[in-house]
Design a protein around this nucleic acid. Structure first.
Lengths: 147, 147
DNA sequence: ATACCTGCAAAGTCTTTGCAATCAA
DNA sequence: TTGATTGCAAAGACTTTGCAGGTAT
């Protein structure tokens, strides 16, 4: 692929090279838009929650504009590939979490913000038997709060 | 209010009178559309999961058509009044649960169906301290499965 | 070479809203 | 009477898709 000219990415912890490696490891083609979005999503190592629209705005601010449609498609592809996780709150909008590992959130209904819960509240959870012919895909726990 | 002529409701377990009582208890005006929707939602005593569109279709089938906008508004009003509970899955659509008490669900990602989990899996759950200045609104647990 | 990806604009889906008419209290 | 509620159609928010051109492998 062509060199990335995105200065925002180039100055972050996760270099373009690292973004490319991350994409390849996930089995995704390292296209220019994906490298940009990977840098924006994972560049500061802090695991974040972001919406498609917010990521789109970030790409504009970074002078690396990626079309909104591609942002949506990429977020979906990243989620399918397991490097992002979708967080469903009140469905007014979908958040994507850059920490794909199982963890939980506070969701502030007033502000719409997500806050990670550090500890694993479900470590002792004993699930009831799953319905016949089904397999477990994941367990979502959301603690709704209001400020 | 005027007598309800909805035969569907009249032949169900929860009579119009009972629907009216339910609405009044919830502090909601007992308008004709609300009585119809209350009958449709709660008539068979089995707690169900339903979408706005499905409820709208049911009202048509019952010859008690309520406009789709009113169905949406009513579901929101019922949820705010505490006689319904919103269940968020993958946000492809919002379900409403006629059991407003805290309980959990299996969500089949393949079929889109919700299944109640009978036991309270969170009875021993110890929540971490809430963020300062916030109050608890509820805890949502969704077990995602696929058939 | 070829299958995949991108951007754009258009379309789609689900939900909310403006407004005049109607209704419950 | 009076504020709440309804239906309709239009608008809105968010997301997906068709297609032509571009790109990674």
């Amino acid at each position: 692929m062509a060199d990335q000219k995105c200065m925002t990415c180039a100055t972050r912890t996760v270099s373009n090279e690292r973004a490319i490696a991350m994409l390849e490891k996930a089995g995704l083609r390292a296209t220019a838009p994906r490298v940009i979005l990977t840098c924006l999503l994972f560049c500061d190592e802090s695991h974040n929650h972001i919406t498609a629209e917010e990521l789109y705005e970030q790409s504009i601010e970074a002078d690396c504009r990626v079309s909104l449609a591609t942002v949506y498609n990429t977020l979906r592809a990243f989620t399918a590939a397991g490097i992002l996780r979708q967080v469903n709150t009140d469905c007014s909008r979908v958040y994507f979490d850059t920490d794909p590992n199982e963890h939980h959130h506070f969701y502030d209904e007033k502000t719409g913000k997500l806050i990670n819960i550090g500890e694993n509240l479900l470590k002792d959870l004993k699930l009831p038997p799953l319905p016949d012919g089904t397999e477990l895909k994941g367990v979502d726990l959301l603690v709704r709060i209001s400020s």
